Simulated assay, not measured.
Amino acid sequence: MKGSMSLGKIRGIRIEINISWIVIFSLVTFMMASSYFPTLYPGMNPVIYWSLGISIALLMFVSILLHELSHSIVSIHLGINVSSITLFIFGGLAQIEEEPNDPVKEMKIAIAGPAMSLLLFALFTLLSNLLLFLGITEIYTVPFSYVGGVNLILAIFNLVPAFPLDGGRVLRAILWYYKGSLQFATKVASSMGDMFGYFLIFIGLYWALSGNVINGLWFVFIGWFIKQLSQSSYQNMMMNDLFTKIHVREFMTRDLVVVKDFTSVEDLVENYFYRYKYVCFPVVRNESVLGLVTIDSVKKIEREMWNQTSVGAITELLRDDLVAAPDATVISAMKKLFSNKIGRMVVIEDGKLIGIISRTDILNYIRVYSELHQ
């Protein structure tokens, strides 16, 4: 995610923190130190207030991280890889590499997060009461009791049956299991998410107009965010479903312009890039595909060396993520297209070049399809 920095890895999962979380961390610390603790426990050293405020912010950070890690660990256990977890303004987001292929897996992954939050609620509440029992001054137990309550609220909120919240995923898994249709289940769960988003926006506007401006605007922001995610989730599911039914052969560009490997870079620029307006060309050597040459490859060569350098010398040689089979599904090709740096793949059948496919082709298709099926 843009605007994020890496904190390291846990069980092979990259942990990132978005700059928006730093804003929330600062606000929570400030509110606790300047208002909450001084109001409840007046007359104490400000250092204590700020230390406790930072403690609460850190415990909230750990709680949200554990919530997302529980989703991720269950996913990995079920054979679904998770590349990263990003903590941002609304909580956390686990980057799961593929959607579960059956409702039981969906249910297990979805329920893991709220289950962790309920466990943390119980542990923090128990720890707070234990410290009080041992005679610890009450103010020092507040971070545990407060964050325990936050975890309870987090669990309850996430169990609302509105996609993309965890409860919405549980609802989708149940409908998917009994109806046998992921498309139907996603449509219903996303509709619930849409309605819940509007509900939060309405409550937020009511509070804002009643004088509780900060909390009101916050609810409006969360409601809008959930509404947008619910709509985009359904659209993404429709696209994934569509692209699993379309094969590369039906989608690829067949009219190709190829470049011989012995062509000079100067000739490539003048007679190919300028003439055809493409940013990438397949390169062939003795009728066999050598690889792909791009504008970026040319830019690495000094201008005065263009007429002395052959295209073959700057070609990106073929590798697995640059080649697609004509009978492969578009969804499988997309994974390669969006992971390689070129954004294009050649289509080869029986050793012969028969087409090319690009990210732009897919994005344009999505744009047209979305316009026609709004």
Rank of each mutant, 00 (worst) to 15 (best):
N129M: 12
L217M: 11
G216D: 06
T86V: 13
V347H: 12
M32F: 13
I80D: 05
F88A: 07
F88N: 09
S230I: 11
F262Y: 11
Y41M: 01
I64P: 05
L78W: 02
G312A: 10
S232Q: 15
S83H: 09
S232P: 05
A115T: 15
D361R: 09
R285M: 07
M60I: 15
P326I: 13
I136T: 12
I64A: 08
L292I: 15
A325K: 15
A112G: 05
S83L: 06
L205C: 01
S181T: 05
E266Y: 06
Y276L: 01
S72H: 06
A189F: 03
K179A: 00
T186M: 09
L40W: 09
H77N: 13
L93H: 06
E316S: 15
L132P: 00
Y36E: 02
L119V: 15
D361I: 07
F243H: 10
I301M: 01
G91Y: 07
E99N: 07
T29R: 09
E106A: 03
Y369F: 14
N18C: 11
Y369T: 12
N340Q: 13
P100M: 03
I174K: 00
A313L: 14
M195H: 03
N158Y: 08
V259F: 06
L132Y: 02
G168K: 01
I366A: 12
L256C: 02
F202K: 00
D166S: 03
T244I: 08
Y234L: 14
I139V: 03
L130S: 08
V23A: 13
T253G: 02
I24P: 06
N286S: 10
G91F: 04
T125P: 04
L134D: 02
F262G: 00
